[in-house]
Design a protein around this nucleic acid. Sequence first.
DNA 1: CTTGGAATTGGAATTATTCCAAAGAGCCAA
DNA 2: TTGGCTCTTTGGAATAATTCCAATTCCAAG
Lengths: 141, 141
Amino acid sequence: MTPPLPPESLTQRLADSGLRATPQREVIYSVLLRKRDHPTAEEVFARVKAELPTISLATVYNCLETLVQCELVRAVNFERSPTRYCPNLRPHAHFHDEQTGRTYDIDLPPAVLAEVNQVLPSGFDASSVEITFRGQARNAS
Amino acid sequence: MTPPLPPESLTQRLADSGLRATPQREVIYSVLLRKRDHPTAEEVFARVKAELPTISLATVYNCLETLVQCELVRAVNFERSPTRYCPNLRPHAHFHDEQTGRTYDIDLPPAVLAEVNQVLPSGFDASSVEITFRGQARNAS
DNA sequence: CTTGGAATTGGAATTATTCCAAAGAGCCAA
DNA sequence: TTGGCTCTTTGGAATAATTCCAATTCCAAG
């Protein structure tokens, strides 16, 4: 498990980008940290409303985008289904269970990451790689 | 370069799924083979209209989906941008150039593929992996 | 205080894709 | 050949996720 980041991290990261730590941003981020099940924007919206009943969906989209910009959160896409959000900052792949639709984080050892980057011919300069598995998880995690 | 598949392959693959080889399906497939630049459905639509001026966009979507089902074509998604289509059946990754938006195929040696699959903990049974690079290509291919 | 930029909000707009019902085509049996 | 059956195509309406926009609201600094 990734240890939860200390709360000053949000404020700090936002400040680094010249942005403010608003209640909306804080609650959205804490919601992501609390339940790391890769929720969609709509799901985040529903969870955040418990604490901020008047928040708007547009704000949820705005804040999620902001958190992604600040690299506090990763946006995860699977085919054309709604974008999901993930506060796991360590290098990891995603496993998409075809039956349940659930998404699992799969830790990526640096060695594998290095190996994968080897496949690029010269002339290709990658700033990031994304690895997504699809299949069946008979798992409890 | 992947050698172009012989034309009977389409008919055969369709027949295997109990489907017919219609002019629409044939032209769409040939358009994909002719220019392998990962076109979107709209782009395929535009190209196909040169040969079949009365084809509809719905048909393009239908046929592309059919070709994907028959495993003659791969659907490629990058973030939430429109789905692109690719007749390269060999195992390969995609490189997405951030400047130009172009997509390149990157051949995946079986060894690397095997290595990547190693990262899955027991209990995860993957039927496919997708690897996508993002970055800059100073390339001519 | 006041004021300017940042942030939020609700609703309209956009966009890719799917849905749907009607018309068209191909093929087999009578 | 003529139905009749199923598969396909078609155009347009519908859907769904996301973005846009203009109007507040919120702060933070002077």
